[in-house]
């Protein structure tokens, strides 16, 4: 029989509102200037929100900066470099901000003068107002966990898989952490941690994790006389 956890896994959900800052950039230079002083809520908004908003499509442009530079500023080469920034690899928003700035500054150096976009096509800096909300779902073992995972919203999945990496213990998703520390399911924890979020929609990710858990459950049941 699978182990029971001492601490149940409580599913939370992440919802957010978007707020305008009133700041906008019309070229690379002003984009960098604003980025340097923007709050972390702004960095979060432009690098993480896409995952929630476009959950039904994959693959998606990984951040708003890449989209704007490619499609509006029409600098495809630089846009591609921005796209290649692996958002989920960063365990802090300030490191992520620095990575974006470095790519943009390199682009500025190489391109020389900065191209301006027409009026109305500026990059609007926005910030994310985040809500962390406990759901009624909690699990003490793998079977309960799988059951809950089938029912929670994809915003919940997003919070535990993607955003979890931004808070302690840094770089680890909540599911893997709980599997490892509460259920001693090291292999399952590793398999979930290895899932590449860019190759799945959130719904796809949900079903993949449920399958991994159910497979593990059948192994346990088979091994139990």
């Amino acid at each position: 029989m699978p182990l029971k956890a001492k601490e149940p896994f409580r599913f939370f959900t992440r919802l957010s509102l978007t707020a305008a800052t009133g700041n906008k950039a019309k070229d690379l230079k002003s984009l960098v200037e604003h980025l340097k002083v923007a709050s972390e809520a702004v960095i979060y908004q432009h690098t993480h929100r896409f995952l929630q908003q476009h959950q039904f499509l994959a693959p998606e442009p990984p951040n708003d900066f890449a989209y704007w530079v490619t499609n509006i500023l029409q600098d495809e080469k630089l846009g591609e470099r921005l796209e290649a920034i692996d958002t989920v690899r960063f365990s802090s928003l300030s490191d992520l901000r620095q990575a974006v700035i470095e790519v943009l500054e390199k682009g500025l150096t190489q391109n020389g003068s900065s191209r301006e976009v027409p009026e109305g096509k500026e990059f609007h800096f926005m910030r994310s107002i985040r809500f962390s909300i406990p759901t009624p779902y909690q699990a003490l073992d793998l079977a309960q966990f799988a059951d809950c995972l089938k029912k929670v919203s994809i915003s919940s999945l997003y919070l535990h898989i993607f955003e979890a990496k931004l808070r302690p213990p840094l770089g680890v998703n909540d599911f893997s952490y709980w599997f490892e520390n509460e259920l001693q399911e090291l292999d399952l924890a590793q398999k979930v941690a290895n899932l590449d979020p860019y190759t799945h929609t959130l719904e796809g990710l949900r079903s993949k994790i449920v399958t991994l858990i159910e497979k593990r459950l059948s192994e346990i049941n088979y091994a139990t006389p």
Binding site: L15, L17, A41, S128, I129, R130, F131, S132, P134
Partner: peptide
């Protein structure tokens, strides 16, 4: 409807950018 509910919570929570709610 969801956005209006969130906006109401934002206003009632003294407009913090990060709002953790208890049950």
């Amino acid at each position: 409807l969801r956005d209006y509910l969130l906006l109401s919570l934002f206003i009632l929570n003294r407009q913090s950018d990060f709002i953790h709610l208890s049950l």
